[in-house]
Design a protein around this nucleic acid. Structure first.
Length: 431
RNA sequence: GGAGAGGUGGCAGAGUGGUCGAAUGUACCUGACUCGAAAUCAGGCGUAGGUUUAAGCCUACCGUGGGUUCGAAUCCCACCCUCUCCGCCA
């Protein structure tokens, strides 16, 4: 959510910056709602003040045993108008809130302007494109050849866009997650967390998945008595439960930055992605991810983003995988982000780079929705900045390892850093 | 699932219809005393919003939402959460 004060003070400026990411801000609508709000709120508060003063008089008069019927008659007339005004004010504020909550974040000045992913800017390439002296297979062929990847059975059990891992591949999947967690906690100073995978709507609103992107989520209905039926949601990323740790709270200055890492499954409906990445485990309804989250002082958030990006990159470097970092352009960024870097790993079978991590600074956008604050040097509560990034997507990392470490005989070499997590196994061969 | 207790400021804890945004204690800040500290004394100390050049004035907030009333922390209803005991359970 943007700061409403910013819209009041510099509506044209906000509209201009939002336009760079392809969002047309309805300034006329805002001005109309704001104007209405102003008039109604002032009037409402005026009436409330009068009611309060009069009621106080009644109390005092009664205490002295005086007759209060005259004052009572006076205040009786107030009631109707006040009720009307209060109702109207509530409506207008709801409308304003709904209007604000679907406005995306403003891109940081350092974000390149552009319309789509073709306008993203490559920041760096790390490592080299691996060369093969045989025809490379994709991870599906490799995995099925090894007897460890079984989409047919997964489809029987659940349906499309699910996968089933067995044997050494399942173990490598676990090894990857362990390796990532250990690296981030031991080398990068993150606190490991175990969090709920099912969350309430408030948490989804806090990080910006709701109200705009409900169709991307899996919703879990629950019955609570007759009326109070509130639905749960499966998390689409650990960003949601982890960032919401600080929702509605004030963090002491000396505790910043808070750095959390969590390994969770992620659930996405993938509505609207029919026909895309249907082969393999690139795009699934359920996948594991190790997520990095930082809750940080506003002055440090951009330095923090670079650091967090580096933490994610470390994993790929340790695994010996070639990748590149791209800075997303204004038109390609997610709803809540002010700046985003994607890390794209090289997949030889597709002869291209594929996203394996996305690291963003949300500035105060999420914090404002969540009322996540810290106590600044002056002792006043101030909004935090929030950062998060994948460190990394486990399923896609497994894909990258299978494809980049394949050998001509169909076996796969286990990267050195994973071997201790796999009982010393050096090569995965067909059983 | 059954029975009971409870949710008030950073914390503890009063307050059961009127001057209560809320006693008191504690923590914290400022000042006095002191060489300094402790103790003591005095003062200050919630959040959000509106309005104003500003000082200020005003509004809302006592788990959440509704209701009764001229007036609600206080009364009524629903819900959420916490705790205790019993049952069940990984």
């Amino acid at each position: 959510m943007l700061d409403i004060q910013l819209l009041r003070n510099d509506l044209a400026g906000v509209a201009a910056r939002l336009a760079t990411r392809g969002f047309a801000l309805d300034t006329a609508r805002f001005e109309q709602l704001e104007g209405e709000r102003k008039v109604i709120q002032t009037r409402t508060q005026e009436l409330q003040a009068r009611r309060n003063a009069t009621s106080k008089q009644i109390g005092q008069a009664k205490a002295k045993g005086e007759d209060v019927s005259a004052i009572m008659a006076e205040v009786a007339n107030l009631g109707d108008e006040l009720r009307q005004m209060e109702t109207r004010l509530e409506q207008v504020q709801h409308e304003l809130n709904a209007f604000l909550s679907v406005i995306p974040n403003m891109p940081h000045e350092g974000v390149p302007a552009g319309k789509s992913e073709t306008d993203n800017v490559e920041v760096r390439k790390v490592g080299n494109v691996p060369q093969f002296d045989f025809e490379v297979k994709d991870h599906v062929s490799i995995g099925e050849g090894l007897g460890g990847l079984d989409f047919e059975t997964a489809t029987k059990i659940s349906g499309a866009r699910f996968s089933l891992l067995k044997g050494p591949l399942a173990r490598m999947h676990r090894a990857l997650a362990q390796f990532m967690l250990d690296t981030h906690t031991e080398k990068h100073g993150y606190t490991e967390t175990y969090v709920p995978y099912i969350v309430n709507a408030d948490s989804m609103r806090g990080t910006g998945q709701l109200p705009k992107f409900e169709e991307d989520l899996f919703r879990v209905p629950r019955q609570l008595g007759d009326e109070g039926e509130t639905d749960f949601y499966l998390i689409p990323t650990a960003e949601v439960p982890v960032t919401n740790i600080v929702r509605d709270s004030i963090v002491p200055l000396e505790q910043l930055p808070l750095k959390f890492v969590a390994h969770t499954p992620c659930f996405r409906s993938e509505a609207g992605s029919y026909g895309r990445d249907t082969r393999g485990m690139i795009r699934q309804h359920q996948f594991d991810k190790v997520e990095l989250v930082q809750l940080i002082h506003p002055e440090q958030s951009y330095a923090g983003l670079e650091a967090l990006l580096g933490h994610a990159e470390t994993i790929l470097q340790q695994l010996g995988l070639h990748y590149r970092v791209v800075k997303l352009c204004t038109g390609d960024m997610g709803f809540s982000a002010a700046m985003t870097y994607d890390i794209e790993v090289w997949l030889p079978a597709q002869n291209t780079y594929r996203e394996i991590s996305s690291c963003s600074n949300f500035e105060a956008f999420q914090a404002r929705r969540m009322q996540a604050r810290f106590r600044n040097a002056q002792g006043k509560p101030e909004l935090l900045h929030t950062l998060n990034g994948s460190g990394l997507a486990v399923g896609r990392t497994l894909v990258a390892v299978l494809e980049n470490y394949q050998q001509s005989d169909g076996s796969v070499v286990v990267p050195g850093v994973l071997r201790s997590y796999m009982g010393g196994m050096e090569v995965i061969r067909a059983s």
